[in-house]
Design a protein around this nucleic acid. Structure first.
Lengths: 103, 103
DNA sequence: ATTTTTACTTTTTTTTGCAAAGTAAAAAAA
DNA sequence: TTTTTTTACTTTGCAAAAAAAAGTAAAAAT
């Protein structure tokens, strides 16, 4: 169990960031407003949590202009995919009690 | 997704408390030292997180003396069982992308 | 008798989360 | 056309939470 806890990735150990990663795993890409609406987040909350994921290299934030309007979209990176899977694997083992009760 | 996030129970949304609950779901009862060793926690960390779970009514903390030595054991409550299940159900749906991409 | 260890709890410090305020550009209104 | 509002975000600041450190008390060892 001790080692499983160490495999819990701090970047994903927060419901908002877990949610963002989940969306991006399933959709490959989503815009600021899509995620904001879907998750019912405030602007600041989404922005700062997305930054944490970007700083860790788990997502990429692309800024472009669509009809003179700025448009921010989020994409999962290869590192993000791999790391998120490892995190979920550890989480799943903790939940399912797949650890030795001795160590 | 928004509603699933609301179903995430703050008391369980922390890896240490999630771990404690997982142990108690699977073992029904465990002592302070068992959990401490199993999870590799410091005394203070276990004590304070267990208190949070107790204050929420999710676990019961029993103190007794075994051969002149104090012995603290943790037990899951009925409320704890039900609430933890609901939490895991929501978590699982978020992870598996079981939410409408419209709301 | 004094020191160390065991079994915790409480206090202090550090980190994190979140809302509110801030920024900048476009669009709408006056 | 200038002013106001809306859109699309980011940054700041404070409260809450987590972790570490310090504290307590009793038992066991020296």
């Amino acid at each position: 169990m001790k080692d499983l806890l160490k495999q819990i990735n701090k970047a994903f150990d927060n419901k908002i960031r877990l949610g963002i990663m989940s969306v991006l795993v399933h959709k490959k890409s989503a815009t600021f407003n899509e995620i904001k609406e879907l998750m019912g987040l405030t602007d600041g909350n989404l922005s700062s949590n997305a930054s944490v994921l970007e700083e860790g290299g788990y997502i990429e934030i692309k800024k472009q202009f669509i009809k003179k309007k700025s448009n921010t979209s989020y994409h999962i990176t290869e590192k993000g995919k791999i790391s998120f899977k490892l995190h979920l694997d550890a989480l799943s083992k903790i939940i399912q009690g797949k650890y030795d009760t001795k160590s």
